[in-house]
């Protein structure tokens, strides 16, 4: 499974070992975000990082946990009531001139929103890249709810989210470099070349995935 290294800036203690060990220079950026275009997902940086600030996340997520229609329906009904509470809290806060009540309603709106988000995630919308989410977004793109709806944002988002059954169908192959020993993954169809020493062709040995 192809992975990408990501850095948690709250944990990073700037030991910069990732700079030493990254075979492609992906960790060498000024904004501290590991460059996804260069990262080959070899994981060497995560192993070397003394503060545990780097982790590897898979590019392809597994299907979501199955949900029964009954649970989905109950959670969605509950979520609707909670969103009505949130809208009520916003309105009460806006309409009031009492500072305490305004603050309490702001906190109520925040709190209720977070609880609703949790409820909707468990109603079958956990992953942004799942087909269930895409279906909702595509429906909105077909029938925008109002003239001032930010359609362009929606289209750009749809362009970034993976198509179901798209590129993800390609197989992942790991290679061991016969020259420097690095093990690195490649997606089927890519021309193998060692990211460390540049070895190609029969110097690279495809590994059987366990």
């Amino acid at each position: 499974m192809k992975k990408l290294a990501v850095r948690n800036l709250r944990l990073c203690t700037k030991d910069c070992l990732c700079l030493y060990v990254c075979p492609t220079g992906a960790t060498d950026t000024e904004n501290s975000v590991i460059d996804p275009a260069k990262c080959v997902g070899c994981g060497v940086c995560a192993e070397a990082c003394p503060s545990g600030a780097i982790s590897l996340i898979p590019l392809e997520m597994p299907p979501q946990q199955p949900k029964t229609e009954e649970i989905k329906g109950l959670l969605r009904a509950f979520a609707r009531r909670r969103t009505e509470e949130e809208a009520a809290a916003r309105r009460i806060g806006r309409a009031s001139e009492k500072e305490g009540l305004r603050k309490l309603m702001a906190a109520a709106a925040m709190s209720t929103r977070l609880v609703t988000e949790d409820v909707l995630r468990e109603a079958g919308f956990m992953l942004p890249q799942c087909p269930e989410v895409r279906e909702i977004l595509e429906k909105l793109a077909d029938e925008p709810p109002a003239p001032d709806f930010p359609e362009e944002t929606l289209w750009r988002l749809l362009g970034k989210l993976p198509m179901p059954g798209g590129s993800g169908e390609k197989k992942e192959i790991s290679y061991r470099c016969g020259v420097c020993g690095l093990v690195f993954p490649l997606t089927e169809g890519e021309t193998p070349e060692c990211p460390v020493c540049g070895a190609k062709g029969d110097k690279l040995l495809p590994l059987e995935n366990a």
Binding site: R76, A79, R113, E117, R121, F125, P128, L140
Partner: peptide, 13 residues
């Protein structure tokens, strides 16, 4: 309201 919470949740995701 539900779409608002859904979108902010997915943004977090």
């Amino acid at each position: 309201g539900q779409l608002a919470a859904l979108c902010s949740s997915l943004g977090r995701g």
